[in-house]
Design a protein around this nucleic acid. Sequence first.
DNA 1: TCATTTGTGTTAGTCACTACCAACTTGGTA
DNA 2: TACCAAGTTGGTAGTGACTAACACAAATGA
Lengths: 192, 192
Amino acid sequence: MPESPLRAQRRAETQRAIQAHAVRLFSERGYDATTVTEVAEAAGVSAMTVYRHFPTKEDLVLVDELGPLVAARVAASAGVRPPVRRIGQALVESATAVTGDRFLLARLQLMISTQALRARHLDNHYVLQQAIVDALGADAGDPFDAEAAASACLAAMHTALVRWAQDDGRSDLAGLVAKALAAAVGDPVRDH
Amino acid sequence: MPESPLRAQRRAETQRAIQAHAVRLFSERGYDATTVTEVAEAAGVSAMTVYRHFPTKEDLVLVDELGPLVAARVAASAGVRPPVRRIGQALVESATAVTGDRFLLARLQLMISTQALRARHLDNHYVLQQAIVDALGADAGDPFDAEAAASACLAAMHTALVRWAQDDGRSDLAGLVAKALAAAVGDPVRDH
DNA sequence: TCATTTGTGTTAGTCACTACCAACTTGGTA
DNA sequence: TACCAAGTTGGTAGTGACTAACACAAATGA
């Protein structure tokens, strides 16, 4: 599958256009008050095309770019001792990487204010949790303990994300994540 | 509003009948493969009646009896020192209270295996989280820290619930919750 | 007994989403 | 250049969750 470049580019363009119009309309009129047909019209395509690029309406907002970052950083931190600290450091570092992303902020604000999006977003933590457990490797002890640690760290990070979105992205995201983790699982940013 | 007893009783009966048939059918055929109309027919009512008693199909499974228990126990534990320990103790105690509830177990297994239910269930943690923060009271320090601690503890408990449901309720739920909390936020069952 | 409230059923409608089929465009090939 | 295969799109019809509006029956309170 050599993936001819012209087709891939066109596909990526329409995909981005659809998502951009969707997030804009959702932010303006509200998620529930905006139909997929309206998004399609704004993007200049048919409703069918929207569903071909995004399996559900929720997926127009829910693209997780943070997940792969976190998993990669966890895998790279094999030296650090307690799993919660490995995960915590990875989360703080990943938070730093996305600071300043206005599009992510807009989508995050939608996710927090809309029930359907909020629910699916939290469910995505499930996938990320498993990715983190896998990234921890075999030497992280009991898988159950690793799952519990990962889910707790993700929940704490989510609290920070909510606060950041409420502050309209003005506060320091990495600092918030570190503070939330400190309150939940103890001080994880203290370097070994 | 004196709530005439005969009407209240009939209402509670139909409500319970609808939910029982719903959970049974969902467990047998799968949540997505069962329509609300089928649930209504099994319960001997019309589809409209189902929607009058349960706002959405998901609510046929998602009734949170654990939430009020946890919030009450947190409020009653004003003496304990760190918030995470207050919350952790409340969660372990509440877990003990629901051990042996087969209906809860069946619903939990549905929640875990079905994406829509899983997502909504996790979103309900949001409400419970706020209830816990309120129950902690004003002396619990920074509200943000309390939110982070509560969400992390709930996430750890959820990991225990998942494991318990996978074990078909055979394992010790309170023990699992305590173990998950220990792995995530440190040992919370150690008595002060 | 009578008026009010409440529970229920019916119908028609919106919207997310799917299956199926037809048309067009692109990419490589004879 | 002509042509075939594959990918992209649009239209139509359908399912299912959910809502609104109207009518009917039963139960409550006077």
